[in-house]
Amino acid sequence: MERVPILKIGEILLVSIQLDMSDQTALQLQEDLAERIVATGCHGVIIDITALDIVDSFVGRMLSSIASISKVLDAETVVVGMRPAVAITLVELGLSLNGIRTALNVERGMELVADARADEFPYDDELADGSDDDPETTSSP
């Protein structure tokens, strides 16, 4: 069985899915990722699905699970690079990927992870650049 590699870049774990995953591979990725989050103490996970030409309900469920598991382990997950045809198909399929943050590309995904951390620790952010121009900030639970 093939395995999906997980890369650590700074404070972020990057998973770039490049193969047509079997269900087993998908479940393995879910396990591997949980272990790596704990082992590295990273607070952000970016899953790049640019190369995936379909996302079916199984992979959709895997993405939701990863997001929920990461949340429990104090990490923010962002799914990036979903193709238009895949998004259109998911809507038709009825899969809403609730609870998953998405971004157009890896770069925007990283911004999103950073923003999420900033929301959580607004104090750090102010110390970092002193800006307080985001009216959309919501208090985190």
């Binding site: 962002v78 799914v79 990036v80 979903m82 238009p84 998004a87 259109i88 998911l90 809507v91 038709e92 809403s96 990927l97 943050r101 998405t102 971004a103 157009l104 925007r108 995904g109 999103l112």
Partner: peptide, 12 residues
């Protein structure tokens, strides 16, 4: 409507 939802899935 579907387009709006699809765009959201893509992160827009």
């Amino acid at each position: 409507l579907k387009t709006v939802v699809a765009a959201r899935l893509m992160g827009a």
